[in-house]
């Protein structure tokens, strides 16, 4: 194990993985063994793989919620294997956007409040949103409009009242607010029907391109491949065979 080298932020890739091995507990089997993976700034990749191939674990490591003890995971130039939990949380709050499969929103907040949530936890996100549009709220409204969620009164409605498709677009707006440099999406379209799936992917692609954000889009749906710069099969980069 070589000590992790300091990476220059400007030249560094969005995600850099080298020799990563991960298991949940010492008495559990290894679930990830990724010799190398690299996502450049601004690139938009589809990470494909069946469920159980370790996708969610890999995303948790990239998002800095879990920490790998072997190998190297660098996100936006920060070595997550050596960063403290607090610093990883700060990095995620300031510079990452995350979209889940479903149930992305806090049901007791309005649509607008949900979009503004990252600005509550990150001053950097709030400042960038302000710099973009004058105020974080204006920026949130702009993103909602971009994603086709500008129906009158919609922003004040409780998130739980929205359709699944609308909820996913709100989640996208939340991930995008304050210009994060990396968006991680964990099967965000699996709950959508085919038409809405294409709509959502196109919208997300466009907004990431506008913001210059790199996108790691995880899905088992390879029909979406044409929208991405590249398709990576997780079993191809993970040396651990798929779990039962």
């Amino acid at each position: 194990m070589s000590p992790a080298a300091t990476v220059q932020a400007d030249a560094s890739p969005a995600i850099l993985i080298e020799g990563l091995r991960f298991r949940w507990r010492l008495d559990r089997p290894w679930v990830l063994d990724v010799p190398g993976f690299q996502l450049a700034m601004g690139e938009r990749w589809l990470l494909a793989g069946p469920s159980g191939s370790g996708k969610s674990t890999l995303l948790a490591l990239i998002a800095g919620i879990q920490r790998a003890r072997e190998g190297r995971v660098a996100v936006l130039g920060h070595e997550l294997t050596t960063l403290s939990g607090a610093a990883r949380d700060r990095l995620r709050a300031d510079r990452l956007g995350v979209i889940f499969q479903m149930f992305n929103l806090l049901p007791y907040l309005s649509v607008l409040e949900n979009v503004l949530l990252p600005c509550q936890f990150s001053a950097a996100r709030r400042n960038r949103a302000q710099a973009m549009a004058g105020s974080a709220t204006t920026e949130a409204r702009r993103l909602l409009a971009q994603l086709g969620l500008d129906a009158p009164g919609l922003e004040r409605r409780p998130a739980a009242e929205l359709s699944v498709g609308q909820q996913q677009r709100v989640a996208a707006a939340r991930a995008l607010i304050g210009q994060p440099e990396l968006i991680i999406a964990d099967e965000p379209t699996s709950a959508l029907d085919a038409d809405r799936r294409l709509d959502f992917v196109t919208l997300l692609q466009r907004e990431c391109a506008n913001a210059g954000a790199a996108l790691l889009f995880v899905s088992h749906d390879r029909t979406l491949a044409e929208f991405f710069d590249r398709v990576v099969e997780l079993p191809a980069i993970n040396r651990i065979p798929m779990l039962g």
Binding site: A63, I65, G85, A86, D89, R90, R92, A93, D94, V98, F100, F103, N104, L105, L106, P107, L117, P118, Q120, F121, S122, R174
Partner: peptide, 15 residues
């Protein structure tokens, strides 16, 4: 679920 969402947008465990 709510906790996971909060963690994803940058909430710290102590928060």
């Amino acid at each position: 679920r709510e906790m996971a969402i909060l963690r994803a947008v940058g909430a710290r465990p102590w928060q």
